[in-house]
Design a protein around this nucleic acid. Structure first.
Lengths: 210, 210
DNA sequence: CCTTAAGTGGAAGAAAAATTCAACTTGGAA
DNA sequence: TTCCAAGTTGAATTTTTCTTCCACTTAAGG
């Protein structure tokens, strides 16, 4: 099926790694919208090199973040194994946000959808059932109100992430306070009402700007 | 002090209003980053006209949103008159968000800082003491936990606004659910801990992208 | 009417990012 | 060593958005 493309020449592989490291660092502080020119300049290569290796921005994002996304999926799996469902949920959300605090780019990716579509979509597909299971258990245990859905968990994620992005420069720890608010909100809000099954997680991890 | 600049010629005033209406509509659905070219084209004027009238983007934003911002300040003042402080806070936040739901541009403005600085800053200066008063009263009445600050209210605003922006297209009412979560969170979170006085509201209504 | 200062349109220039490409290197197989 | 496919470079081109400018039009006072 998939042709095995021959390994890169040594110098090419070196440049590839260099570009990836540089791009990751730049995106960690400035977000996903770093220009190819900036990356190439910071890595000390020519424009041509980055374009040859990553013709589409998606190619770059995939290479950059796929392992990190796997890490987050791991977290979800670990969380799903918690006996205490609520503890699992809070632990998962906090770990995930700590990772995003270290890399703005990864945060933007995890909370968007039209950036590296396949990658993020796959991650959501893997994690949603796990989160749904935890939530169901937490509801049964009386730790979450009836009517809580994975979308509510996603909402909490988006909410805290938004505060994080807004206050990164001036108050890098403020998101923890927002997290406390969001978590307390999940436990105590009346979530029985509307927006039942038709509220898919996708509605949140969705349309970025345009 | 301020020179009274002569009134515009009739046709010019007509164009000015046309541009303002057009810009408002475009920004209501697409956000603040609409290009001058798009606005001019939609209004049926030339580029020169919009640049003559609004040489800086700030000039346009000021003219566009100052009255709407005054409306929001009004809301804060009304809220401050509530006997029930918590009812005042929730009413204010919900009204404000309803306005933002109708205009994405206004929402971005109210939750940013580096867009139309003077305008928004003045609004925050007016509203913060009012909100602070409500919060203090609510804490005294046992409606909010000790340690709650205006920054927490701002955080709730940013959090729900973030969900709103993320789900505008696909689930335009989802923010109401996020609002319930945020409000329940404010009431039930432990807010006594860190981030006391040094957490100014500015830290939240702050650095946009760059 | 006429005049003219104010206003207008839209092409042209400038700036920034995305993308291409032809001439020039270089790793590594033979 | 030699050779050449793979790799690199950076200038040139395209694209997009921002901004300026000037020849042309028009409102409104005399």
């Amino acid at each position: 099926m998939a042709e095995i493309d021959p390994p890169l020449r040594r110098d090419a592989e070196r440049n590839r790694q260099l570009l990836l490291r540089t791009a990751y660092d730049l995106m960690a502080s400035a977000g996903l919208d770093v220009s190819y020119e900036d990356i190439a300049r910071a890595a000390g290569t020519g424009m041509g090199t980055i374009y040859r290796r990553f013709p589409q921005r998606q190619d770059l994002l995939d290479a950059l973040f796929s392992e990190h996304i796997d890490t987050v999926i791991d977290l979800a799996e670990q969380a799903a194994r918690y006996d205490d469902a609520w503890a699992g949920l809070t632990w998962f959300l906090e770990r995930q946000l700590e990772i995003e605090a270290k890399s703005r780019g990864l945060g933007e990716l995890l909370r968007s959808r039209n950036q590296a579509t396949a990658l993020v979509q796959r991650a959501h597909e893997r994690m949603t059932p796990l989160v749904a299971g935890l939530i169901a258990r937490a509801v049964r245990a009386g730790q979450l109100p009836a009517g809580a859905t994975p979308a509510d968990f996603a909402a909490a994620h988006v909410m805290v992430g938004g505060v994080m992005d807004a206050s990164r420069a001036s108050a890098p720890q403020l998101w923890r306070r927002a997290l406390r608010i969001a978590l307390a909100g999940l436990r105590h809000a009346d979530l029985s009402g509307d927006s039942p099954d038709d509220v898919v997680i996708d509605h949140l991890y969705n349309d970025q700007k345009n």
